[in-house]
Structures are given as C-alpha cells and as structure tokens.
C-alpha cells in the first residue's frame, strides 16, 4: 500500500479510515506522491489530488447526467418547438399575405373588367341613342323635305296654273287693247274675232 505523507494527511483531515486495497489505482497514488512533495503545507496541489477524483467524477456524472436528461427531454424540444412554431407562423403569415394580395389583385382585375364592360355598354347605349336620334332626325327631315317638296310642287302647279290663266287673260286683254287702240286711233270698229286673230298673228311673229 502506498501511503504518502500527503495522502496520510488527507486521510486524517477528512477523518477517513485507513484506505483499503480498493482505493485509487496505484498509478494515481504515485502521481500524487510526486506532487505532494512540493506543497506539504496544503497537501497535494488540489487539481492533481487524485483522492478527490472519484468524488468529482461521481458528482459530475450525477449533475451533468441529470442536466443532459433535462436538456434532452425538456429544453431542447421546447426551444426547438418555439423556433419551429415561429418559422411556421412566419411562413403561414407570408402565405396568407400572398393569398390576400392575390385576392386583391383578382378584385382589381374584376373591377377593371367590370368597368371596361360598363364603359363599353355605355358607349353602346350612347351609340344606339345617337343612331336612333339620328334616324329619327333623318326621318323627320325626309318627311319635312317630302312635305316641302309636295308643297313646292303644289305651289308650282298653282303658279303655273295662275301663269297659264294669266297668260290666257293676256290674250283677252291684248285683244281688248287691240280693239280699243284701233277704235281710238283709227276710229274704225274691229270685231273681237279680228282683234284676236291679229293678236295671234303678232304672237306668232
């Protein structure tokens, strides 16, 4: 058994019973021997004091093991879940925004289509109204023109009738004038028939 001064002191400090054969491996105890010579006042340099190794490893295994289990079971799934959920939510919101944008675009397109249709229809209606008005105006005009033409023709026939009448009377007047002239200038008497013949001769010339 390797019982170094340091080890012995350590044992007595901690009120440990004498180490039995299952104590730390011989090699470790020997390392301790080498270091222990430097710091006899405080035992071995603490980080190299192999008598504390077993306790540190045990408690490290317990604490770190529990820590690992807790991380593995609770914390990592939880934070991973939070981040995942956030990523999903952002993707979902982006999708929703895209969908709404598409909807708005569709609405705008529909609105514009509607507007174009309405404009076309308005143009059509206006055109129809215009055509109708024009047709009515044309009909009115042709009617008025026809009436005017009829009236004009009537007037013309009237005029020509009057003119004929007047011309007919001109002969009679001329005959009267001839008989009067002859009577006044020559003092003779001409018959109506003679005067008429004379007028007809004059007219023929």
């Amino acid at each position: 058994m390797f019982v170094t001064p340091a080890f012995a002191q350590q044992s007595s400090d901690g009120a440990l019973p004498d180490p039995v054969d299952t104590t730390p491996a011989a090699g470790e105890v020997q390392t301790e021997t080498g270091v222990a010579d430097h710091g006899e006042a405080h035992g071995a340099f603490p980080p190299f004091d192999s008598s504390t190794f077993a306790s540190q490893i045990l408690w490290l295994a317990i604490t770190f093991g529990l820590f690992y289990l807790f991380m593995n079971r609770v914390i990592v799934p939880r934070i991973g879940g939070i981040l995942e959920h956030r990523r999903d939510r952002i993707a979902q919101d982006l999708g929703e925004a895209n969908r709404l944008k598409e909807e708005a675009d569709n609405a705008i397109a529909a609105y514009e289509q509607e507007l174009a249709t309405a404009r076309n229809r308005a143009a059509e209606i206006a055109q129809a109204a215009r055509d109708k008005a024009k047709a009515a105006a044309d009909a009115e005009r042709t009617k008025v023109e026809g009436e005017l033409a009829a009236r004009m023709a009537e007037a013309e026939t009237h005029i020509s009738a009057i003119k004929g009448e007047a011309l007919g009377e001109v002969d009679a007047i001329a005959t009267d004038v001839v008989s009067e002239l002859v009577e006044h200038l020559l003092g003779g008497k001409v018959t109506k028939a003679q005067a008429a013949a004379a007028v007809r001769d004059a007219q023929a010339k």
Binding site: G14, L16, V20, T22, P24, A54, S55, L66, F67, I75
Partner: peptide, 24 residues
Amino acid sequence: EIGGLDLSFTNSSLFMVLVVVSTA
C-alpha cells in the same frame, strides 16, 4: 464514503449542482 472510495459531497459538487440548477 463507499467501499473505501471517498465520494463526499464537496464544494465542487455543490457548484456543479448550482450550475446545473441555475442553468436549467
């Protein structure tokens, strides 16, 4: 102490526990 092995709960063990508990 178990079977001659010193497995004492030391100040190091205490701080391991503190580290683990506070972090967790």
